[in-house]
Design a protein around this nucleic acid. Structure first.
Lengths: 215, 215
DNA sequence: TCAGGTGTTGATCGTTTGGTCAGGATTTTC
DNA sequence: GAAAATCCTGACCAAACGATCAACACCTGA
C-alpha cells in the first residue's frame, strides 16, 4: 500500500504558531494589548516564554498576527448581500452570520473591539480601505433596494453600524448581557432565540417583511 | 455690600481631584486600565506624579473613582420610560438621551465599554444589582405596552441591549464610524442626523409609529 | 504672626515585563 | 548516519512603572 507522504515542511512551525495565536487571541481579548503578558500567553499555549519569542519576535508582531487572522473573518458575512438577492432574506442571512460569529469567535470580536476602542492604530489601513470599500459597495446595494421601493428609506451605511453594534454586543458585552439576564452562560439555544429576535427587529426596522425564515 | 463667604474647606482638594479624575477618564479611555500610566494621567492633569498618589493612593483606587462617576450617569436616561408615557415618545426620548451621552461623554462610554469587555471585575455589583433591577423594571413597562397592543411583541430586555449597543457604538467605535464615513470628526449636526435615523429605525423595529417628533 | 494642618514634589525603591542570548536538543536532508 | 537546519529554553538584562517617603511650601484660623 502506497501512502501519500504528507508535506511536513514547517509542520512544527505551523503547529506552534497556531497554538500561540490561539492563546494570544484569548489573552488579548481578556486583558487587552497592554494588559496581556507574553508569560501568560506562553503558559496558556503550554510553551516556555522564550519559545513564543522564537516565533514572534515582539509582542506587537504577535498582536498584529492575531488581528490579521481576525480581519479575514470579519468581511466574509457581507458576501450574502447582492443586488439580485431578496432583501429580507439577504439581510436575515447576514445578521445570522454575524450572530454566529459572535457565538463561535467571541475572543476575536473582543480583540477587534478593543483595538478600535483604543484608536485602531494597528488596523487603520483595514478600516480606511478594505472595510470602507466593502461598506460603500453593500450600502449601494441597499440604496438600490430603497430606490426600487423594496425597503424603507434609511441612511444605508448606518444600517451596517447598527447590525455590527447589535450582533457584536453579544460577544463583546457578554458579561453585561449574562448578568442582566441572570444566566451563567448563553448556550446555543439562547443564541438561537436571540438571533431570531434580532432578525425580526432589524428587518422590521428596515421595513422589510419576512415570512419564510424564522431562524 | 455683604458677600456670602464661599465654603473654601477642601477647595484645593476638590479642585485637584476633579482635574485628576478628568485626566484619568481620558487616559483610561484611550489606553485601558493596564495601558494607562500614572505618569501620563499626571501630565495630562498638569501635576507631578507624586501628587496624583497624594489624592488617590493606588491606580486601582483612581480607576474605581472614575468608574463610579460614570455609573451614575449611566442609569439616568431610562427615567423617561414610565407605564403611562406614550411608548413612541418615551423610547424616542430615551434614545436621544443615550445618543447625547455618547456625543458629550465619549470617554466615559469607552471606559465603561473597556471595563465590561475585560470582564467587568470592578462593576459586577453595579451590573448584578442596580442595572439588573433597572432593566427588569423598564422591561416590565415595555411588556405592559405589548400586552396593551401598543408595541410589537419582542423580548423586551433585549430591546435595551440593542439600544445600548447602537447608541454607545457611536462613542466606543467612533474611529471606525468616522473612517468608514471618511469624516474627520462627527459634529453636532452629524449626531443630530444620526440620532434621527436611529430613532426612526428603532421605533419602526419596535412597531411604534411616530409622527410629531422628528428629532 | 505663628502654629498646625494641608498640599507639593524630587528622589528613590522593588517589581514586573519585554526582549536577548548562548548552548543544547531535535528534526530534516542527503 | 552524519551534517545542516530548525527548534527549544533557562538564565539574564534593561526599561518602565506603581508606589513610597522625607523634606519643603503654602494656606488657614485664632
Amino acid at each position: 500500500m502506497i501512502a501519500v507522504a504528507p508535506d511536513n515542511s514547517g509542520r512544527i512551525r505551523r503547529q506552534n504558531q497556531e497554538r500561540i495565536l490561539d492563546a494570544a487571541e484569548r489573552v488579548f481579548a481578556e486583558t487587552g494589548f497592554a494588559g496581556a503578558t507574553i508569560a501568560e500567553i506562553a503558559a496558556s499555549a503550554g510553551l516556555p516564554k522564550a519559545n513564543v519569542h522564537y516565533y514572534f519576535s515582539t509582542k506587537e508582531d504577535l498582536y498584529r498576527a492575531v488581528l490579521q487572522s481576525i480581519l479575514t473573518l470579519w468581511l466574509a458575512p457581507a458576501d450574502r448581500i447582492t443586488p439580485d438577492s431578496d432583501p429580507a432574506e439577504a439581510m436575515a442571512d447576514y445578521i445570522r452570520a454575524k450572530m454566529e460569529a459572535s457565538r463561535v469567535h467571541p475572543y476575536a470580536s473582543k480583540v477587534f473591539a478593543n483595538e478600535i476602542l483604543h484608536g485602531g492604530g494597528q488596523i487603520q489601513p483595514f478600516l480606511s480601505e478594505d472595510l470602507r470599500r466593502r461598506v460603500e459597495d453593500k450600502a449601494a446595494v441597499l440604496d438600490g433596494w430603497i430606490s426600487g421601493g423594496r425597503m424603507a428609506p434609511v441612511d444605508t451605511r448606518h444600517v451596517f453600524f447598527w447590525i455590527w453594534a447589535i450582533t457584536q454586543h453579544y460577544a463583546d458585552f457578554d458579561i453585561q448581557v449574562r448578568t442582566v439576564l441572570a444566566r451563567k452562560r448563553l448556550a446555543r439555544r439562547d443564541f438561537d432565540h436571540i438571533t431570531a429576535e434580532v432578525v425580526r427587529f432589524v428587518l422590521r426596522g428596515l421595513g422589510l417583511e419576512f415570512s419564510i425564515q424564522q431562524g
